[in-house]
Write a protein that binds this DNA or RNA. Structure first.
Lengths: 203, 203
DNA sequence: GTGGCTATTGCACCAAAGTACAACCCAAGA
DNA sequence: TCTTGGGTTGTACTTTGGTGCAATAGCCAC
């Protein structure tokens, strides 16, 4: 695996050389004009105030791209991944970490740092916990028929009965019938509470 | 790093031996009674219908534990992590993947599969993005009066107008008045969409 | 076939949600 | 003082949501 750092200042940090002795450096201009190499991994160094999505979208899509940020904030990490990067880590990460990233990304995985992962887990904990309560089959889905699950999802997305009816090509009356059944099975009283349940915010 | 598989059937799959030639196998009974080895990594093989949390909690807490599931579903992965495991992957994963897991977990990381990670990221991205938008004060709260924020919160929690009225010691009519104002300011059409907005699930 | 489950729909009805128009009180400012 | 904005409420109205009762139809298992 060949490694290429994309950095306008053409800097080459010691931790990089230690991790990948044969690492190369190119400017963004070069990266933009050269044809992307399939067997290479690109490491894009971002400035502190830059927006990952903008920079990434201005580059041609190489096979494997990892973003290097001086002060990676969670938002940036997400933005990077959304824009197509396969990972995002600290510019000054230890060589072992860099090699770890290489392995994971090289095998088709996504790499995110532990801190982000924990943050993600924390901020999703409500959802996750409710999902985890799946165990005894207390999942909302398990108690509903296939059709009912579909209706419940649309309701939870904020659609009206009329809209749902149109979308599913059935009568509004039928939608109501499904809802009545759902309310009964899930022991909720109206569509809003159903929404909270489906979105994992309650019970 | 020493590797030990915990499997009552004492099976030893080829992919395991390929990944870790010196891998050993013990039953759950043994694992339960032997004192846990600090420098070892434990790989717990789970049956299809078993609940990770139950099994894990029945074992002594070894330093590093990874769960192996035949058909890992997201829920199981989450449950495993919650119960203290550092990762969860497919029993029949390729040797490269297994070594990858070893590296990440060995370095103090958590390992989750790509599919789960994407799921988690998807379900969190909305929340984080809305958090990111916090900065410029584009928060839903900023557009509402103090009283309206209170009403919006209760609505988002699933309460009815009548309940909100009782709770705030005002008339149901007043609640409606506030809601009409809120809908207008936030450009949503009903209480459910307001709920989605307040709970950071939409827009 | 028969019974049970799901999906579908109609009609009628009630309750809750939401709107339109208007009024009153009160506090903070110009 | 007069104005402005938030909070409050009333009457009357429309719309949407939700239920009860009932009917039809397809599918699957016993």
């Amino acid at each position: 695996m060949k490694h290429l750092i994309i950095d306008d200042a053409m800097r080459l940090l010691p931790n990089w050389q230690e991790a990948f002795p044969e690492v190369g450096v190119v400017s963004r201009q070069q990266a933009m004009h050269d044809e992307p190499q399939v067997n290479a991994m690109y490491w894009l160094r971002l400035g502190v105030e830059e927006f990952p999505a903008q920079v990434i979208s201005s580059l041609p899509q190489p096979g494997k791209l990892v973003v290097l940020a001086d002060e990676p904030r969670e938002v940036n990490v997400l933005e990077s991944l959304t824009a197509g990067a396969l990972g995002c880590c600290n510019t000054h990460a230890a060589p072992e970490v860099l090699r770890q990233v290489e392995i994971v990304v090289g095998n088709g995985g996504l790499w995110v740092g532990q801190s982000l992962l924990q943050q993600v887990l924390v901020s999703t904990s409500r959802v996750l916990e409710s999902k985890a309560r799946d165990l005894p089959g207390e999942d909302w889905k398990s108690q509903l028929s296939e059709r009912e699950v579909g209706v419940a999802r649309l309701v939870a997305a904020g659609e009206s009965n009329k809209e749902i009816a149109a979308e599913l090509a059935i009568t509004e009356r039928t939608v109501k019938a499904h809802l009545t059944a759902i309310f009964d099975k899930l022991q909720v009283r109206d569509r809003l509470q159903l929404s909270l349940r489906v979105n994992g915010l309650k019970l």
